[in-house]
């Protein structure tokens, strides 16, 4: 056991944690907004529902790494893309990773939210209508809060999956946690120690996130507390 090496490795890996967290946070935020839109679109019309179903089918049925490559390497094939105002973003690995991760999590997230929407009791919606709420108010005050609360546990696991998925960004040259670990390995040739350290950091991040979601769940369901078991 070379403690000095382990300590140095942990320090170097720790300096990459913010990149991993930022990737996860930005893509989950964009993905959540997109998922909400998709779920509402799916509930709105027949054509909308068909489009969302196709989107979900494609993004859930193919590997995330293929999606990342399709965006990072694939889009540059078209002159129209390379001459557009989006090119400064799409040529950068960072934004390609964010885009792929966000589009991917939006597909899973929209299904989770759809489940939440389906679980809103019809009585609550009727009560809202009887009280004279407009469609917008009804959604803001009744449907969305109930649906999001219902969807939270499943969404929590989706966030964990996303944190793990950010490791794929290392394949398109982003030096987040996994990318940094690979660099250290290619400098030191000590694969096992370094990758185990990186794994421990991922575990710690996911442990904290699981706790945070659990805490949020408890805060959002005050009525469920104090019930004798």
């Amino acid at each position: 056991m070379d403690l000095a090496f382990l300590g140095e490795t942990l320090l170097r890996l720790a300096s990459a944690i913010p990149t991993t967290l930022e990737l996860a946070f930005v893509s989950v935020s964009i993905g959540l907004a997109l998922a909400l839109l998709l779920a509402l679109l799916r509930a709105s019309s027949v054509i909308g529902a068909a489009c969302v179903r196709a989107y979900v089918f494609v993004f859930r049925g193919s590997p995330l790494l293929v999606q990342i490559f399709l965006i990072y390497y694939g889009l540059g094939q078209f002159d129209a893309v390379r001459e557009s105002f989006l090119w400064p973003f799409l040529r950068r690995p960072w934004w390609c990773a964010i885009l792929a991760l966000a589009l991917n999590t939006a597909a899973y997230g929209s299904e989770i939210i759809r489940g939440g929407l389906a679980a809103v009791p019809a009585g609550s919606i009727e009560a809202g209508r009887v009280a004279g709420m407009s469609r917008f108010t009804l959604y803001r005050r009744i449907v969305l809060p109930l649906a999001l609360r219902q969807a939270l546990p499943a969404y929590g696991s989706e966030i964990i999956i996303m944190v793990k998925s950010t490791s794929l960004a290392s394949i398109i040259t982003i030096t987040e946690l996994t990318g940094t670990a690979r660099q250290i390995v290619s400098d030191s040739f000590r694969a096992i120690e370094v990758f185990v350290c990186a794994g421990l950091i991922y575990l710690a991040i996911n442990f904290v996130l699981t706790r945070a979601v659990l805490l949020l769940e408890r805060t959002l369901t005050p009525h469920a507390r104090g019930v004798p078991r």
Binding site: I160, S167, S170, R190, F195, A198, Y202
Partner: peptide, 19 residues
């Protein structure tokens, strides 16, 4: 279930080769 699959593959690939 808490660490990325890519990391497991790296661990087996590079770690296994090192061993």
């Amino acid at each position: 279930r808490g660490i990325p699959d890519l990391l497991v593959i790296y661990l087996f690939y590079f770690g296994g080769s090192a061993l």
